[in-house]
């Protein structure tokens, strides 16, 4: 079972290769919103500037703010703290804490519901259970499928299953609310995520690049996540505390923040 890699003609259900204007099977034209789809930037201020914590994008579309940080701790939250996002229902009441550190600044997740995501600048190692964001999509990495237990079902009856193949890992899309949506089990050592021609395609996610990110398993069984020079980046959920660098991007709820450290 796999997904068509391109837009599928609404008239005859044949996949139409990228950039084609008409369906090769039935001649029906491809709608303009598909043809003219280009990846959009999350926010206008995504190019580097000089401020300190810059809100690039808010959940409700309101204008971004710049927060100048003092040499003390700052709490980010929906109702508590110094940096407040009262209109973002995905931010917990107390969400995260920015702390000065000898080399600059760290961010600490305060046990928030949705966690803190940091942009991946170079390949990072993932563990099964880790979450990451591409475009508007949230994914969770699952390790290899459990060994088939079907051989001896109840009363020695065999379980009839779909044909299956060994798979080193699966990627699962997590929907708002927590339901598992799309799921893809790797057939080889790598899975790509993007808008078209990838293993997992999100044709109508305008914040997703054509080829956005790649997840690989090494022969030793370690998982790595690589951003494929996407326009908006790939963000991985931090585990507890993370040291921040100048130019790091963070997601707190649906707020996209840029961290700027002046030396």
């Amino acid at each position: 079972m796999e997904q068509a890699r391109n837009y599928v003609c609404k008239s005859c259900a044949t996949a139409v290769p990228s950039s084609h204007k008409f369906c090769g099977a039935c001649g029906v034209s491809v709608p303009p919103d598909i043809l003219e789809l280009r990846t959009k930037y999350f926010g206008a201020m995504q190019s580097p500037g000089t401020a300190q914590v810059v809100v690039i994008r808010t959940a409700d579309g309101s204008e971004g703010m710049t927060y100048s940080l003092q040499g003390t701790e700052h709490v980010l939250g929906r109702t508590q703290g110094e940096i407040l996002f009262p209109n973002d229902p995905w931010v917990s009441e107390t969400h995260a804490r920015l702390k000065p550190s000898p080399t600059g600044m760290t961010i600490e997740d305060e046990g928030s519901q949705n966690g803190v995501y940091v942009r991946v600048l170079e390949p990072v190692t993932l563990q099964p259970g880790d979450h990451f964001l591409c475009g508007e999509q949230l994914f969770i990495l699952e390790g290899s499928l459990p060994e088939p237990s079907s051989e001896s079902g109840t009363e020695q009856t065999y379980f009839y299953s779909s044909p299956k193949r060994p798979s080193p890992f699966c990627l699962v899309q997590v929907l708002e609310g927590g339901d598992q949506g799309m799921r893809y089990c790797a057939r080889e050592h790598a899975v790509t995520v993007g808008r078209e021609d990838c293993h997992m395609n999100f044709i109508d996610d305008v914040f997703m690049s054509g080829s956005h990110a790649k997840i690989e398993v090494t022969p030793e069984g370690a998982f790595t996540l690589t951003d494929l020079d996407s326009k908006n980046g790939t963000y991985v959920k931090i585990d507890g505390t993370r040291e921040l660098k100048d130019g790091d991007y963070l997601f707190v709820g649906k707020e996209l923040l840029r961290v700027e450290l002046t030396a």
Partner: peptide, 21 residues
């Protein structure tokens, strides 16, 4: 889907847009 638009302790649960799913 069972949890669309789910809220835990006043905070919405983050995830991919569920559109009309």
């Amino acid at each position: 889907f069972q949890n669309l638009g789910g809220v835990v302790q006043g905070t919405k649960v983050l995830g991919s847009p569920s559109k009309d799913y």
